[in-house]
Every structure is written in C-alpha cells, then in structure tokens.
C-alpha cells in the first residue's frame, strides 16, 4: 500500500552584513521512479528570485537561482507531495565473480572509484570473506553502526569518509561515505542517495520533524538500497531525491555569495503522512 507524504524543507541563511549577490543550486526535488511518484513540488526563494530548472547528469532535478538585490537573509522553502512504495527489488544474486566482469567494471566505473569524499579507509573486517555480495551488504549494514557513533557536530559538510572513520563518529553523510568506501574497495558498485526520512509513528495527519537524509544503493545483480545510519530497510518512509558518486553530486543546496561576513544556517524538514 502506497504512502502519501508531504515534505517541507526550509533552509535559511542569516548574514551579519549585506550580501550583494548570491548564486545557488538546490537539489531538493524528489524524482519519479517506478517506486515513487511526485504529485507536486514547489520551490520558493525569499528575497524573490526567478528559478531555473534543469536535469543534471545524474538525472536529478536542479533548481538554480540568483539573488542580486542586497540582502541579509536568504530563505528557500521546498514543498513536495510524494507517493512512496516499498522499492521492488530485482534479483540480487550476483556472485563475486560476476562483479569482476570487465563490462560491469567499465559501465559502473563511476561507482567503483574513490573520490575526494569517498576515500580509502581500513575497516577491521573483510567484506569479501562473505559468501555473496548480498551477504556482504547485510553484514555491512549491521557493522556500520557498531563502528561509527551517530553524533551531530562531529564532522562537517566537507569531511571525507576517513575523517569520520578516525573519529568513529558522524552523521548520515559520513555513514554513507564510509559505506561507499568499503563497498567500492571490495569491488561492489555503490552510489550515494540523498532524500528524506520520515521517522514518525505513521499516524495520518501528524506532522513530524524529520531530516534531510542519505543512504546507499549497492549493485549486487540489481541496485539494492540500504540505510547504514539506521540499519532499517529502505521503505515507504524514504523519499528519494538524488543519486551520485558522493555528496558533492547531490548536495541539497550549494551556492556562492559575495559581500556578507558570517552567517547562520537553519534547516528544518517536516514531514506529514497524508495517506
């Protein structure tokens, strides 16, 4: 049975002094997939700005805008209404040998390479000792929460996997990067997924404070999503927005500005199950 979720994602920046110009790209629009249908989406910018949309290389809907009147704050409100289902999974019985195929390694090269953020780390376990790649995913999904403590503030937006790994602490971005690093090292293609997580009771009409979230999709015959931060399966409570090699490809809001000094960011995500 499909869920219908309403998401409001507000981001506000406060600047200490006037900002003369600001250019931004938001990746906050849920995508249509076989398991997810976007009923409506709207992005508003204050101070008012015209929003230009395009689909990027990874298939993500990007909203680009610039603000060129002097301003001391910037507010972005993204509202979506999405129907979600438990993802249908294809066959997941690729063997370790299958993953060695030249065709696969060539086609999925981008999801097998390290990046600045998905850099090498040394886990105390060897994924390849698992019988199958699927077993390796189940193992990793459990192991990550034993290795890393969820601790907001311990890392920042530019932290690579290795930093969270050394600190043994981080947020979902770090759980995701570290998982990708271990998977790619083991030869399992894996990509970064950005989206939202509903963590309420499931009661219709109840608004809950949720979060901008990230998880992993690994290729083990087909793409298999899993959520190493929580260890829960990816189901109707996960709303998919963007996929990429790492956080840089999917960051919900990225921009540059000139003028103003320091700033405060406030981000709130609220989700309501409508049906």
């Amino acid at each position: 049975m499909a869920w219908r979720l309403s998401v409001t994602h507000s981001t506000s920046f406060q600047y200490e002094s006037e900002v003369s110009a600001s250019f931004n790209e938001a990746r906050m629009t849920p995508v249509n997939t076989p398991d997810q249908f976007v009923i409506s989406h709207d992005l508003k910018v204050n101070p008012f700005s015209t929003v230009f949309s395009y689909k990027d290389y990874f298939g993500t809907e990007v909203k680009a805008f610039d603000v060129q009147t002097p301003h001391t704050y910037l507010e972005i409100v993204s509202q979506s209404l999405v129907e979600t289902n438990i993802p249908a999974l294809g066959n997941l019985n690729a063997s370790w040998d299958d993953l060695q195929s030249d065709v696969l390694k060539n086609d999925l090269r981008e999801y097998l390479s390290f990046t600045e953020l998905v850099n090498p780390i040394t886990p105390p376990f060897e994924l390849r000792l698992q019988d199958t790649p699927l077993d390796a995913i189940h193992f990793l999904n459990k192991a990550m929460r034993e290795q890393i403590t969820y601790l907001p503030g311990s890392t920042n937006v530019y932290s690579p996997a290795s930093e969270a790994w050394e600190k043994r602490a981080g947020v979902c971005q770090d759980f995701t990067h570290a998982s990708l690093s271990i998977l790619r090292e083991a030869g399992i293609p894996a990509r970064y997924v950005s989206g939202y997580l509903y963590n309420g009771s499931g009661e219709i009409g109840e608004q809950v404070i949720g979060e901008s979230h990230s998880w992993v999709e690994a290729w083990v015959g087909h793409w298999l999503p899993f959520d190493p931060t929580n260890g829960n399966p990816v189901a109707e409570d996960h709303i998919l927005v963007a996929r990429g090699r790492d956080y840089h490809d999917v960051s919900p809001l990225k921009g540059i500005f000139s003028g103003g000094r320091s700033r405060k960011i406030e981000v709130t995500v609220s989700l309501t199950r409508i049906a």
Partner: peptide, 24 residues
C-alpha cells in the same frame, strides 16, 4: 550600474542531517 562586483566568493552548503550547525 547593476550589481556590486563579486570580489570574494564564499561557499554555502548544508550538510545532510546536520541542522543548525554553522559549517563555516
């Protein structure tokens, strides 16, 4: 006449699932 020069650009980016943290 229209806009001030962009002399020094700064990046703004929000970390996922890390709210209210100044990432400067």
């Amino acid at each position: 006449p229209d806009v001030l020069p962009i002399t020094r650009m700064q990046q703004q980016e929000e970390q996922q699932q890390q709210t209210g943290v100044n990432n400067a």
